[in-house]
Simulated assay, not measured.
Amino acid sequence: MLIKAKKFSVLMSIYFRESPVNFRQSLESIVNQTLVPNEIVLIKDGLLTESLEEVLNEYILNFPNLFKIISLPVNKGLGNALSIGVKECSYELVARMDTDDICVLNRFEKQVEFFNNNPNIDLVGTNVEEFNVEPGDLKRFRKMPESGEPLLKYSKFRNPVNHPTVMFRIAKVLEAGNYNGEILLFEDFSLFIRMLQKGASFHNIQENLLHFRTGLGIDVIKRRSGLFYVKNEWKFALLSLKIGNLNFFEWLFYVSTKLPLRLLPSKVILFVYNQFLRH
């Protein structure tokens, strides 16, 4: 089925620790979509390595007028970089993409088509397949609630969308205060609960439209555990209580169950996640 013409931006942020190989795979999956974006807004979050610059310059040369590059002199962190990037996007619809993930061939076509058919929806995410080296090597999937009350209930304790898959109406992101770097590691989750509290409507397409690079999982768990993570999750829980995403008893349950878990050994957390939290 042909979809209505709908221009959209892709928003990405990159910093020096990214792998040039992963970056190239990510860009390849974008420029070869069945529906190619009208622009890619790429935030260079601080100085990049020479190898990353070479990959980027190759794609800028091969796809003239597609890239809008915003160079930040120093690393400002993901939330602040994306906040700047949102304001640089030219179109109503903006798709997020990470620089190490791989889009399924028709991801953007599916999402734009959904927006065309559902003008009341403000953000569309998808399910993902997790992988280590090559898509399909782990046979693991992350399924999100589709919409409505199940999604709202889910959002009280877990991120209701897979962040790298989302496409959103830029006006609704700005209405909720945009991304920010106030709560490190929770830049996306904190934005999404603010959007929901402002009345934004979310929907998750029940298809795996992104290959999500997780490695074997232990590195991800290490980033989501430890005292530094607990301090930021405490801030996030307070925000969730303040804006009404959690009532007091839900907040008490959240901090008494999730925060202690973050202080357990990484292998224990990974076991709990794989056994009980992954769909």
Rank of each mutant, 00 (worst) to 15 (best):
L2I: 12
L2R: 08
L2K: 15
L2E: 15
I3T: 13
F8R: 09
S13W: 00
I14P: 01
R17F: 12
E18S: 07
R24S: 11
Q25T: 09
Q25E: 14
S26E: 06
E28Y: 13
E28D: 15
S29G: 07
S29H: 10
N32A: 06
P37D: 03
N38G: 09
I43K: 00
I43H: 00
S51L: 08
L52K: 00
E53G: 02
V55N: 00
V55T: 04
V55G: 01
N57M: 06
E58F: 11
Y59P: 01
I60V: 12
I60Q: 08
N62I: 04
N65G: 01
F67M: 02
V74A: 04
V74L: 10
K76N: 09
L78P: 01
G79R: 03
N80A: 12
N80Q: 10
L82H: 07
V86K: 00
V86P: 08
K87M: 07
K87I: 02
E88D: 07
C89T: 12
S90D: 14
S90E: 09
S90G: 15
S90Y: 04
Y91G: 03
E92L: 08
E92P: 03
A95H: 10
R96I: 09
R96S: 07
D98S: 01
D101M: 04
I102F: 02
C103F: 13
F108W: 06
E109H: 04
E109K: 12
K110H: 10
V112I: 15
V112H: 07
E113K: 15
N116V: 05
I121P: 03
L123P: 00
L123Q: 04
V124W: 02
G125C: 04
T126M: 03
T126C: 14
N127P: 05
E129A: 11
F131N: 05
N132K: 09
N132S: 15
V133M: 09
K139I: 12
R142C: 03
K143V: 10
K143N: 07
E146W: 02
E146G: 05
S147P: 08
G148K: 04
G148L: 03
L151Y: 09
L152F: 04
L152N: 11
S155F: 02
S155E: 02
K156D: 00
K156I: 04
R158C: 07
T165L: 08
V166P: 00
V166E: 01
V173A: 15
V173S: 06
A176D: 06
N178F: 06
N180Y: 02
F186I: 04
S190D: 13
S190P: 11
S190G: 10
S190T: 13
L191K: 07
L191Q: 04
K198C: 15
A200Q: 11
F202T: 08
N204G: 08
N204C: 14
N204K: 07
E207K: 11
E207W: 09
E207L: 09
H211R: 11
F212N: 14
R213H: 15
I218A: 08
D219P: 10
L227K: 13
Y229C: 06
Y229S: 01
N232I: 00
A237F: 05
K242E: 11
K242H: 12
K242F: 14
I243C: 06
N245A: 12
L252M: 12
Y254H: 09
K258H: 12
K258E: 12
P260Y: 11
L261V: 13
L261E: 13
L263C: 13
S266D: 14
K267L: 09
K267D: 11
I269N: 00
